[in-house]
Amino acid sequence: MPPHTMEAIQFDRKKEQILLIKAPYPIKPIKNEVIVEVAYAGICGTDLHIAEGAFPCRDDPVILGHEFSGVVSAVGPEVTHLKPGDHVAVDPNSGCHYCELCHGGNYHLCKVGGINNTVGIWKDGGWAQYCKVAAEQVHKVPHHITLEQAVLAEPLSCISHGWDRIAPIPVGSRILILGAGIIGNLWASVLHLQGHRRVIVSEPQEARRKLMMNLETNFDIITPDELKAHRAKDPSWGVDLVIDCSGYAPAMEEALLLISPGGKMCIFGVTSPQARISISPFQMYMDELTIIAVNINPFSFPKAMGWIDAMGSRYLDYGHLGIKTYTLSQYKEALEALKKGSIAKAIFKIK
């Protein structure tokens, strides 16, 4: 029998507080609902923005956590592809299924769904022992993929969508990654997996630069000042692709000046809604530059599972990625370590 209450971490937007609470166990699933006993739940940079009041979320208190894996605990009567005991990962995003955007295959841009209806932001999420979600958002994890790896399916599904948006990326391209947090580390891992070697990573925090070195990609890992020095020594120096994983607008603005003619910038990191950058339309015209933004993960969860299968422990080892696990009761310690940059990512190990 499941417990009547469970541990959960809740954010109260009005009080600007994150608290460990005793929450009621999710009520019995109906129709196409699934209750997942959470095993691993990640802390995303977006969660930090939410806690700081820089990213919108539900006005009423909400259990955060939009990256999680676990074991099916119970299913509604209309659920046919899952059963109790199945190992699963949860896609927190879905559309309204009625609007033109959803019917056009772009549910991530839906004004009702997409990022406006995300589990763990607008609905109670995975920073809890149990979470109830729609069955269509629950993906069975293959037997050879661990739940420890599967919790990375959500960020990797977003990267997969980004990859599709900026493709093709010819091997031999000169690539600049801005930011060596977990997203920068995962982008670096995927690029290395795909055969890319001419990659530079710019990161201001020494601790994060050291963590990136653990990936053993032999990429150039430098400071923003060292990046500027490249251009100062050779005004013609540049890169073919910039992937921003920092969400820091001034860094993006400076990187625009480093893109070679015909090059691209991928805006992947989530910024504050108030952030702004200045762009020269003349430079865009003269160099035929392309700026591509990436919003979550439409239909890319299966691709993420494929990447996890291909990446395996070579790229997804927690120690190499700079990931540290915590219990729910250690949430303050986890958030503080992330803010300091002493780790690349924190993940709650719950089950």
Rank of each mutant, 00 (worst) to 15 (best):
P155I: 02
Q194F: 10
A337Q: 15
V38S: 10
P235W: 06
I291W: 02
Q137I: 00
H108T: 12
A229V: 00
Q283R: 15
I35E: 03
K14C: 04
H196N: 08
L48S: 12
D86Y: 03
R209I: 01
L101I: 01
H192E: 03
I145M: 03
L335V: 05
G104P: 11
D59P: 00
Q283E: 13
V79N: 11
E333K: 15
W187M: 05
S189Q: 03
G238W: 03
K31R: 14
L19P: 00
V112D: 04
I259F: 02
I277Y: 06
S236C: 01
C245E: 04
K123Q: 14
Y40H: 14
E78W: 09
A310F: 00
Y107H: 05
G162W: 05
I183W: 00
I243W: 07
D12I: 01
K340E: 13
P281H: 08
G45I: 05
Y331A: 11
I183S: 11
I308Q: 09
M212L: 11
G113A: 07
A275E: 14
K28S: 14
I182N: 08
I243L: 12
A39Q: 08
V75I: 15
I27E: 15
G95C: 08
C57A: 09
K351C: 10
T118G: 07
R314T: 12
I291R: 02
R197A: 11
I43V: 15
E333R: 13
D12F: 00
L156F: 02
C110F: 11
S160T: 04
T217M: 12
I175M: 13
I183K: 06
R231A: 01
C57V: 03
K14P: 00
I177N: 06
A180N: 05
K340C: 03
W163F: 12
A41M: 06
G247E: 02
A135C: 13
Y130F: 15
P261I: 07
G85Q: 03
M252E: 13
G104I: 05
G184I: 02
I159A: 07
K264M: 11
P204W: 10
H81I: 01
D287F: 15
G42D: 07
Q149T: 10
T46Y: 11
N295H: 13
D60W: 00
A207F: 08
K83C: 06
K22N: 14
T146Y: 09
A249I: 05
V242Q: 06
E216N: 14
E7S: 15
N185F: 00
Q137R: 11
C158K: 04
I200M: 08
L109D: 06
G269C: 04
T327S: 15
V36E: 01
P170M: 08
C57N: 05
R174E: 11
M6N: 04
E154D: 12
L20G: 09
C99N: 04
L147A: 01
V34E: 09
S342N: 13
M265Q: 13
K264R: 14
P170G: 09
V151A: 04
G105I: 05
W127V: 00
S73N: 14
A304S: 15
I182S: 13
A134H: 13
V34F: 10
I200Q: 03
V34Q: 09
V34N: 11
F301W: 06
Y25K: 09
C44K: 05
I115K: 00
E253R: 10
C158M: 02
H230P: 00
V36K: 06
G76I: 04
E254V: 02
Q274N: 13
D91G: 10
I177M: 07
R174N: 09
E253A: 12
